[in-house]
Design a protein around this nucleic acid. Structure first.
Lengths: 359, 359
DNA sequence: CTCGCGTCCTGTAGCGGTATAGACGGCCGT
DNA sequence: ACGGCCGTCTATACCGCTACAGGACGCGAG
């Protein structure tokens, strides 16, 4: 096999030092234009594309890529429009900086854990299990980090949305409409599924925790004790089973608050199956303002968050953190919280008049 | 600032050679269990996470990450369910191998082009401009490559679906229903938009080219000359304008073949605006069998492709190519083509009876 | 007793770049 | 004529790790 072409190969051919060839590629102002042209020409002739990224990474200490750890199931994360729009916004914002985005599975594969073993200049931590080993590696590597939709930390920049406030206004909206019998539909990969005691809910994510708190802020204030169901996020059939648990019971709630619009959609489907009219007999509120919200009929009342802004802010925070780390400036972590906004559409209405309820 | 902890630091503390410490991390069977425990313990005490990925990449020649170049606009790619499901399948399939997936913008940013400057072990090329500089870099770097939805090459593995066959059966379906006046709705970022002469269509992607060929196979055979409109893929409003161009004209076609289900959706919307009944007055056929196909009312007749299988096959092909490259075996490129299947649902029907047409 | 072999550990030589300091000639101002 | 400075190019020392070729030692077989 032919010897690999390196800077030295080119240097020998042109008759200059290796350093000069390096400069021809990386510091054009360090040598005369004529020589540079000659070097680049022979480099091209020899099939040399550019300085080897791995070697450059070692020598310079920068890799040109940042990572992002997501929830355990990458496959699932990619079916969720909210997550993908966020990712897209990050990628888009990163493009002009020349940084690539590396998707890091939080699990180990073949004895290697990407969060520990892949070279990168910094990373995002996006709605991922705070106890995961991947996150721990990232922290111990002292990488510039930005947490998104995570429990805020002091040590790194955090980007969040006002989940609690949004959830609170969603719940208040239902209360104001007159609902007193309300179901909460949570979602999560792990942990208990099905009907749940609202007291001892172990919620996975920070966002879930906050949204639940927000709902209960408003519900507690109105003296309402919700029925809580937790459904798995991955399997659509199982998810529908969760919704059915809430709707297919004698004391069916007149309104459901959903952890996300995707979940709200399953409620729509189950309601249709059960011939429950929305919103006449059942009000449904989502969260996120996913594009599907306006595609549903009736259109979904939901809580809007600007995931694109979240992505852009996260990208900006990370590039800033990386720049500070390079220049040796002690980085001042940012704490960004985006507002949420209740968007009332067609899926909520006053509860049906209670005709034959003896009380 | 404290000196960085390296293998040597640990070696000095424990009183062994640096090589032994390296083995403690990378080749556990090369030293006694006791010593290894001691080394790992002091490493942990010193805050050492593991061998530096950049240095290891240089020494070993592997990085633990593979890249993927997508269409120019990463942000757009992430709003498309077909693309994201494909990405998800790749990521999922890669996870157990310990490989991370790096998203490579095909454009340059800040003087660096990730496809040239980011270290990786191989890469996917997914429905991206074959003349792009990014692709050229990848090829010149001699990286193991897998092309997906691209014009097949001899030099690398290719994964495709039978776009042409699927399009052909879609068009034939309309012909069989009795349609003679058919519109074609293409999509593309660049190039001419609006009404287009079917003769000189410059299509971006390989898939687009194939689908067009398939449609015309069936249409030509029936002696039908379609009306062709090409709409931009990014902007939803502009996309709808494209659909309107087709529907809002005196000789409106009785059926539309769409490049994708996402485009078909815009046709639904425009048809609703124009009070055109689907399928009574207008038949619509999509492509991909995107999840939205079954959410549309009436449910969309479309051509199914299994994007998840495509993703898994691509991942398998790339890991195989990388393994071969490592072992020095000359890699035998694979050529994989997945079948497509017409799924007839509710959006297609015979054309309306022509009442007052003089012929 | 010696040879051969396996286990466990070490020393050296890279991997392919970049940082940094300095060599060298020419041009400037004085 | 001379010191200083700028524009170019070079020499050397790493960056942190792994491959590879041994060396030392213990043990069973001949």
């Amino acid at each position: 096999m032919a010897q690999r072409v390196t800077l030295q190969t080119i240097a020998d051919h042109v008759g200059v030092s290796r350093m000069t060839v390096s400069n021809a590629f990386s510091k054009p102002d360090q040598l005369s234009a004529g020589l540079r042209r000659r070097i680049l020409a022979t480099a091209d002739r020899l099939g040399y594309v550019g300085p080897d990224p791995a070697a450059r990474a070692l020598a310079k200490g920068t890799t040109g890529a940042v990572g992002i750890v997501l929830t355990s199931s990458l496959g699932y994360a990619f079916t969720d429009l909210v997550a993908t729009r966020f990712l897209g916004a990050i990628a888009e914002e990163l493009t002009p900086t020349g940084l690539a985005l590396t998707l890091l599975p939080s699990t180990e594969g073949g004895g290697v854990s990407p969060a520990r073993d892949v070279a990168m200049d910094g990373a995002f931590v996006y709605s991922c299990d705070p106890t995961s080993a991947a996150l721990d590696y990232l922290v111990r590597r002292r990488l510039p980090l930005v947490h998104v939709d995570q429990q805020p930390t002091d040590s790194a920049s955090c980007v969040n949305v006002d989940d609690r406030g949004g959830a609170r206004s969603a719940a208040r909206h239902l209360v104001d409409l007159g609902h007193r019998h309300i179901g909460l539909l949570m979602s999560g990969l792990h942990g208990p599924h099905g009907l749940i005691d609202p007291a001892d809910i172990t919620i996975d994510g920070h966002a879930a925790k906050e949204r639940l708190l927000g709902w209960r802020d408003a519900l507690d204030a109105a003296g309402i004790d919700p029925i809580v169901v937790r459904q798995p996020a991955t399997d659509l059939d199982q998810a529908r089973a969760g919704a059915r648990l809430l709707l297919d019971r004698p004391d069916r709630p007149t309104a459901v608050l959903c952890f996300s619009d995707a979940i709200a959609e399953t409620v729509f489907e189950v309601a249709e199956d059960l011939h429950i009219r929305v919103p006449a007999e059942l009000s449904i509120v989502g969260f996120d303002d996913n594009p599907i919200a306006t595609r549903l009929r009736p259109m979904l009342t939901t809580v809007r968050q600007d995931v694109e802004a979240k992505g852009r802010a996260a990208a900006a925070a990370l590039t800033a953190a990386i720049a500070d780390a390079r220049s040796g400036i002690p980085h001042l972590p940012r704490r960004i919280v985006f507002p949420t906004e209740l968007v009332v559409r067609e899926s909520t209405a006053p509860p049906p008049a209670r005709l034959s309820v003896t009380e």
